[in-house]
Each structure stands twice: as structure tokens, then as C-alpha cells.
Design a protein around this nucleic acid. Structure first.
Lengths: 241, 241
DNA sequence: ACCTGAACACCGTTCAAGT
DNA sequence: ACCTGAACACCGTTCAAGT
């Protein structure tokens, strides 16, 4: 934790002259993690990060590396915070807990879900989750399909969360065009658009419901995905016997 | 189609002096669409787009608007190319055809899937697909859940395609770290990582299979999602009776 | 080793001035 | 109305020079 003022607008003073402790890689990553919570992983600049630790941009490169290197380190930090369910639970319970439990953590760091999904194997902290996840599926009897099932379950979850992050950012644009669709509210020749308009209207009238809307979609998507994978498991089992 | 050289490095000459036809909004969007095919929606700059129609950047703003406005128009063009299955097909067949058919088109325009998903209701061309899609689900008996089911099916599909686009771009970084995981290939105490390493090894030895790997994941994800939704439909039906 | 300060090669966007 | 050319306020990144 840096003792200096963290405001992104503060002008960096001379470090040694002011008797400040030297900048460390850890301190930089801490600051980057905090900035990510505030503005999102893609929305802080190297210059902002530098001035938040009262240093020049080149100092970031000296201690950590380029922007991507800092981002990678932030993702490691986030991954380590994900709660991993107890080993030994049935595969469905284990993945249900994992996927529902990681959403609130990932949502604290907007943009992290997308980068983790992209970095995938490049982030060492993901090894633990991969090991436990694939092992759970192997034990459940998914056999050779375990890796594919793991990939589909995880990417479905991460992608939904990444989409929520993206949408939060441009909430404005979406609100503007909602009116166009609300016009179909009672259309009888366009029953599909009418149903959508009704759902849209309902979620806009009750803002506390709108806030939970993404959560419901997420839970629904995860539930359907687990359900579909479960059906497939029974197919595999019936063939194997 | 512009008669002038389209290379992004070409220096814009005087338009009227050279007797060139005036720049049009359509011409700009055509050029942006071609650039998107070549380098992806997020990877061309306004300056590149301008010089590809032999004009100054300000001309783009005059005829279409800022970068986001151009992107939106490109998305409209892409959406209109998506093949929509015949009405009247059973819901499962209809969505199966839609989701599997739109992938090759979207993949031609890297980055378009993500933006379309984000713009969602802001793009007018999406209205036809929404109407047909939700109407199909209503007829199938999904009732009030039709809108949620539509959202989950579509976002699962779009998100997977968006992820493929993202991964194509940074294929380099992923290859570099594959070696770390291949070390687990025959690990007995880490059966999960061993299974992943084996799948990874297999896909790297046969590059023609690796190319089709994303396609398989996509088909698997779509199939599981439809399966899961199908199970839910039977639950709804059994309650309604 | 660590930091400074300036510079480089870019961005998207705006705007007065020309035709 | 359409285009020119320059400018503004930013980026990420590099580098010689200081301590």
C-alpha cells in the first residue's frame, strides 16, 4: 500500500528528493488492481498507473514491463481470489458452486473475465482450477470428452460475465434505443418483438429487477449448460456399458 | 467500388483536382467493411479508412460520423448477410440452422460478433432475427421464458464466435505457453492437467484438426445449450398441463 | 539499480479556411 | 456542400542522461 496520494491527476514529484521508498513491482500491481476495480482493466492508462504511484511511465517498464505484462499480473491476482469448491463433490454440484461463486469476484474487476479467458493457459494461477475441474469430470465418467466439457462450461460462464462488463460501460447507448423497441409492445403481427418489448418494459419499470436481470440470465445459462452436459453424460454412459 | 488504389499507405491527393468522384457515405462503409475483413473491426484506424478512399480523416466525420458510427454501419451490413432459416421449422431445427449458419459469416468479419452483441437492440437489422426467433420459441411453448431462452441461445453463440475472433489475434502468446502445460502430459498425480496436455498435444500435431477445433467446441456448446433448453421445455410443459 | 525528462510515432477528433 | 491542412489532446513505448 503506497503512502502517497493515489489521485490519478497528481503530478509525480522527485522520488529520492522527497525521501519516498523506491517503487516495487508489487506496489505497481497493487495500484493497477485498484485502478481496475475503479475504472476497468482496459480503461486505465500506463500514464495514469504511473502517476498513481507517483512515478514516471518508464518506471512501470523498468519494474514490471509493458501494459500487457501488468494486465497479466492483475489477472493472476484475480484468479487467486476465485473460490474453489471442495474436491469430492459430485461434478454438477462442484461446477455449480464454482461458476456461481466466481461471478461476484470477477465482476469486481471489470474486464478481467475477458482477459483471463484470452490468456487462458498463459496465466499460471489457472492451473489449479483446470486440474480440479477436469479431474472432477474424469471421475464423473466423461472420459475423453472431459476437456471439451470443461472448456464449454468455463467459457460459457466467463463469456457471460465478460459481456456484463462490456454492457455496463455502454449502458447509455442501450437505453437510447430501447424506445424503438417499446413501440412493438402490443403488436399482434409481431408477437416475438411484442414479447421482448414487454420484458424490456418490465425490467425498466423496476430498476431493482433490472439490476438482477443479468444475474438471472447468468444463472439460467449456467443451469441450461449443466443440464445439456448432464444429458450428454447419460448418452456416454449408455454407450460404454 | 472506388477506382483509386486502396492501399492503406497511399497518400491522399487532391480529390477535385484529380477529377475523382465525391466521397459518399456508402463508399466509406464499403471500404470499412473491406478493412474489417482484412484486419478486423477494432484494428483499422479512422486515418487508414480515410486514406483507403483517398480522403482526409475529416471527410469520414462529414459523411458518416465518428468511428463508432462507422462501426455500427458495418455491423448492419454483416447482420443483413446472416442466413435466416425458414419460418415454420421446429424450434430446435430452426435455431440449430441459425446458430450453425451464422458462424462462417460472422467469422469473415473479425470483431463483428462482439460489437453486434453489444449493440444488440441499437442495430435495426437485428429486429427481423429477434422477431422470428422469439416467435418460434413462443409457438414451441416456452411461454414467458421465450425472451430469456432467446437471449441465452443467441448470446452463447455470439460469445463463442467473439472469443474465436479474439484468440486468432493473439495466437502467438498462446503457443508460447503451451509448452508449460505439455510437461504434465503423463503426470499421474495431476490427471486433469494430463488430460488437457494430451488434448493440446493432439491438436498441435495435426494442424488441420486444430483449425477445426474451435468449430467442434462451438458445435458442442450449441448442442449442449439446445439440449439444456429442451429439458427445460419439458418441465414447463409438464407444469402447464 | 533506479529514476528523470524528453522524445517518437502514433491515435480520434475538431475546426477555420479554402473551392 | 464538400474538402483541405493543420492543430489539439491524448496514447504506449523507448532512451540517453542523471543519481
Amino acid at each position: 500500500m503506497s503512502l502517497s496520494s493515489a489521485g490519478s491527476g497528481s503530478r509525480p514529484r522527485s522520488r529520492t528528493a522527497a525521501g519516498l521508498p523506491p517503487v516495487t513491482a508489487d506496489g505497481i500491481i497493487d495500484a493497477a488492481t485498484r485502478l481496475t476495480v475503479d475504472v476497468g482493466l482496459e480503461n486505465w492508462t500506463v500514464r495514469q498507473l504511473a502517476s498513481s504511484v507517483n512515478a514516471y511511465p518508464a518506471v512501470i517498464y523498468h519494474h514490471v514491463g509493458d501494459r500487457d505484462a501488468v494486465v497479466k499480473e492483475v489477472c493472476e491476482r484475480v484468479l487467486m481470489r476465485l473460490p474453489i469448491p471442495d474436491a469430492g463433490l459430485p461434478w454438477r454440484v462442484w461446477f455449480g458452486e464454482l461458476l456461481l461463486g466466481m461471478r461476484p469476484v470477477l465482476r469486481e474487476y471489470p474486464g478481467a473475465a475477458r482477459r483471463i479467458m484470452l490468456l487462458e493457459l498463459s496465466v499460471s494461477s489457472s492451473a489449479i482450477i483446470i486440474e480440479r475441474g477436469v479431474a472432477t469430470l474424469l471421475e464423473a465418467g466423461f472420459g475423453e470428452e472431459s476437456v471439451v466439457v470443461y472448456t464449454v462450461l468455463m467459457s460459457t460462464a466467463f463469456q457471460h460475465i465478460a459481456m456484463e462488463d462490456d454492457r455496463d460501460q455502454q449502458a447509455r447507448a442501450r437505453f437510447d434505443n430501447a424506445e424503438t423497441f417499446l413501440a412493438y409492445r402490443n403488436s399482434q403481427e409481431k408477437p416475438g418483438l411484442a414479447a421482448l418489448a414487454e420484458a424490456l418494459d418490465e425490467s425498466m419499470e423496476k430498476p431493482e429487477m433490472a439490476a438482477g436481470y443479468y444475474g438471472l440470465i447468468y444463472e439460467y445459462a449456467v443451469a441450461r449448460c449443466l443440464e445439456g452436459v448432464g444429458v450428454r453424460l447419460e448418452e456416454i454412459r449408455s454407450v460404454t456399458e
